[in-house]
Design a binder for these strands. Sequence first.
DNA 1: GATCCGACATAGT
DNA 2: ACTATGTCGGATC
Length: 942
Amino acid sequence: MNAVEIEEAVSALARQPFDADEFPYAFLQAFGRKDVELKRLRKNNTSDVVGGVLRRDSIHIAVAAPGEVGATLAALRDSPKSAANRVKFLIATDGDEVQAEETATGEFRSFPLPELDRHFGFFLPLAGISAVRQIKDNPIDVKAVGRLNKLYLELLRENPDWAKEEKRPELNRLMARLVFCFFAEDTGIFIGDTLFTASIRQFSEDRAGLTNTDQVLAQLFLAMSTPTKENGNPTSRFRQAAGVKAYADVFPYVNGGLFEDAGAVPRFSRAARNYLLHAGELDWKEINPDIFGSMIQAVAEDDERASLGMHYTSVPNILKVLNPLFLDELNEKLGEAGDSVRKLRALRRRLSRIRVFDPACGSGNFLVIAYRQMREIEHEIVKRTGDDPKSVIPLTNFYGIEIKGFAAEIARLALLIAEFQADSRLISQQAARSMVLPLHKSGKIVEGNALRLDWLEVCPPAAPVTEERDLGGPTGQLALEESRLSDRDEVETYICGNPPYIWSNDQTAAQKEEIEISFSSRTKGWKQLNYVSGWFIKAAEYNSAHGAHSAFVSINTICQGQHVELLWPSLLRLGVHIEFAHTSFKWSNLSTNNAGVTVVIVGLSGNTKIRARPVLYSECENKAVERREAENISPYLVPGPDLIVRKASRPLAAVANMARGNMPYDGGNLLLSPEQVTAEIPTDRMSLVRRIFGSEEFIYGAVRYCLWIRDDVVDWAMETPSIAKRIGLTREARLRSSDVGAQALALTPHRFREMNAGNRLTIVIPAVSSENRPYLTAGLIGASDVLTNRNYGIFDGELWNLALLSSKMHLVWIATVCGRLEMRYSYTNTLGWNTFPVPPLTTQDKADLTRCAEDILLAREAHFPATIADLYDPEAMPDDLRRAHERNDETLERIYIGRRFRNDTERLEHLFALYTKMTASDAGPGKKSLSKSPRKRKEKAA
DNA sequence: GATCCGACATAGT
DNA sequence: ACTATGTCGGATC
């Protein structure tokens, strides 16, 4: 259940007659507990309080005798079972009053039962939704979205023609208008705090099956789009001429684009009318334009309705972008200005010339937060100078591109609401009301595809702000004056946002084409770029040509592995630099079903820098954010030069070759459990069975077998029916695949896609493994064992290679240049092993390293049967194994520089330097040519 | 013929 | 429902 559904269920419960026996279960049910769970709870209730029900890790709830609520809550609190079962909430009610306590915080609430729905945010953790302050104290956003969603669906049901593409904009506009009207009547923008809802209730009829709500709404909208004599200019068509009826004439002129014309209104069924009135009953004053906006976005999108838009960027994450991008610097300037009126006024002028542009703006979160923060700074300036408090920050300085029409509409509205709220809060309610109408121009939000639009047309090259404001809105006069005073001031542009991430395999043809347009002339590998790359290149182009600065939240792989060589040369060639960055952190917002993705934030400069030193932020274990200054931040988001490690098909250093394991591509038919081996494979065919290792088998010691059938023994293998059957099933599975490569493999169904194996021994390294272990866990498997594609192997290689793989040096290298799965290490031969810089090794070096590798293996063996996972548990790594690794590191690092490295930073610096040297001598003075050598290409063509 | 990747996937607890 | 930690196979080179 999402928050909206829970709100509805809780409201329903609050209205129901009180049933003492059932209430605890009904309560749990309202918070999304499943029927099976409730059934189990009824049978097996461990509460020791009379009338109590206890659910482990969740709640201890009891129905009290009339008037005994306080005593019952105390009993719940004192019950040893509450603590033992780590209960989150204690609740007691007698049917009239409710008392509740959150155990973790001690927060206490007491309220009449019918008001339960007002407090549902308090209990949201019961449903696994961690309540952020704003939602907890202010469930209005959730309620509002739920009710609008109902209305939207009902309107579509009643007016199927409005679901068509060409009608959608009108429906979107209608919803935005309604939100504005609800907001306006609750904030005193309309005179009388129920003017809008009451007018509808009063003047629209409610007869069975028929309402004229649409006509009434059309009248009200007509009034709001038509000037009165006082505020119209002489050419306006005034109310009377426009045919505005008397009951609508009490509404003010609003226009501002939102009410540009009367607009069409769809038919309202009786239910739709009720939903409309019901929505109007909420108190819209406290709406959060950011939260509400991102949630309401889902109302109009079929694919998002299930999650109800809980995937928006949270305010803390938005600030991680905006603060280093420009807000920190403004606050710094504010501090420096002190009480100097001249400096303060200059800073205020600067604020009026800052443009914020989000080319993936959704419902405008980033823009709204940026606006709010800028208003706070301006407010502080005004407090110190005593100047006119009317804001000089025009909404027209806020630009956006959004592909979904409804979201774009909401973004414009959200900015207007944010402005009104800022005026109310920072100046006065009265001033806010007097300034708000008629609405002036909101942010310039363009509906369209950001990768196909010309950003310069959306947000034209910096020019002084001289935009005529609509009929002297709140900031118009002052903004004009200011801009006249300071035409020579520079306009600053900051690009920000959270664009969509789609990896190359999941992109649609259209999306691929968009990437092609931006990248095909820049890089060969554009087909493998993540969709988000499109925003980076367009921002870099804009920055570099117009001195803007940009910062995006992005999937972290943009700064890892192959992406670095695919994307970053194109960016760096434009002369942009990483001005600040935030290293990987896990995406999170209010949602229970958070997107499973790890992100970075990358801030790009224009071709001039505003900061002397770039700043690198990273989240420590305790969630605090560490701030480091650096000479330069590399595309890998580590301090260091803009060095890019490119895939190599052979090792640069004189080390063994590494190949990938073997991909089954078998629908599970070539793989066997030990039981299947005993049951299906006759003893005289056991030579066809080998033990096979994926990452998991290697790390956890799980046992799995496979059919390993060389071409010369296929016929002999096929004699056994159970084996023949498995081969047949493999053929079918491969034929079913949509992949042409897989279908070709159907011709050799006895084979894995590859058949790589060692004759003597194989050095193994898992493709994906936990980042929590102190070393990469390479090891050995036997002569007859084989690998799946989840491992890389050095077949029949010398043991000193294992010493390299097991070293801190290698870990540091892999952690930096290879890709990651979330935070896991994602090892690859071409990026990690073949590029690993190793100095030339003497025979003695190799002998020393071989001994080190043997010692590591011996230390592991001493703990038989501990698995690799046991041995490298970060908390419990055995001392002798740790010492063996220490000796290995000591030996290897002496080979590099004659002593131990002081830390990982020094290790990485040295490795990068060595890499530069090795690639320079390798590719000659022309430096790395992107393509293969001419000779090789010819070979390929032949 | 060989691969890097995943607004992830899934087994445990 | 979190937490921990790696499957699997495809479009692409």
